[in-house]
Design a protein around this nucleic acid. Sequence first.
DNA 1: TTGCGTGCAAAGGTTTTGCATGGCA
DNA 2: TGCCATGCAAAACCTTTGCACGCAA
Lengths: 145, 145
Amino acid sequence: MQHSGGYKTKQREVILNYMIEHQNSHVTVNHISDYLTGQGTPVGVTTIYRHLDKLLEQGLVRKFTVDASTCACFQYAAHNEDCHQHFHLKCDTCGKLIHLECTHLDELIQHICSEHGFELDPFRTVLYGKCRDCLQNINIKEQTT
Amino acid sequence: MQHSGGYKTKQREVILNYMIEHQNSHVTVNHISDYLTGQGTPVGVTTIYRHLDKLLEQGLVRKFTVDASTCACFQYAAHNEDCHQHFHLKCDTCGKLIHLECTHLDELIQHICSEHGFELDPFRTVLYGKCRDCLQNINIKEQTT
DNA sequence: TTGCGTGCAAAGGTTTTGCATGGCA
DNA sequence: TGCCATGCAAAACCTTTGCACGCAA
């Protein structure tokens, strides 16, 4: 695999390290910037955006948007390439983001593809609804009222 | 149903009309603004945003976000409230909006609810990917190249 | 007349672009 | 040395807010 002629710079290294270390969570440009500044290796946001774009093209990170008022989230994805597809559930009430890995969803993707001719992109798709905790809170309130 | 004390203005009327006429597609604030300007009844974007916010609170429209760099999409929703659960598929490439009614999805909702404790709201959820036509076009291009 | 509705202008935030400088090879 | 990488500043972009005026009731 060629590195698209990129130089090996300190900035590229620390950004990539951060993404790999946090591959289990979704991070924003601000997260990266704040962390690197705190580590004493600050990197300009412009540079972070440009690196993420490159990593995106190379398929090393995934980008998705939960909400227009929220900034874009990124996640390191190299090792996920061929593992389970996973969806994101977002709770309308508390805003929590849930990662859902489930064979049901693989089947769903298959089904929508074969029966409806639509190739679903789970990384761009966010399922909205209400999480367990918020549902409980709502029930408690209703009972109290 | 009370109208939250709102006045009946020309702007409210033309915006609501537009939303109802285009209830089968996702529209942006720019779409609305451009159309109304073309119709000779221009309405400031501020007003459009504010009306959509109100309609959102009243549950008369739904709001979707495709991408952070794209503007938010809205859709009139009143008459769909009690009809079949159905999902929307949106093609990333051509922007087409597909209504998908399928028992598979009912099962999915059931499953996510019972197994994962998450109550999915199909009306707020849009599944992104590529439609049949665009997939074919991509294949044709790849064969030609 | 009262008070919400309107729209201009300006601010808010995220992301992109221009350009001069810096650093890798 | 050549050329890409960097980062500041500024622009672009969507959206929200402040404020004075207009208009429905």
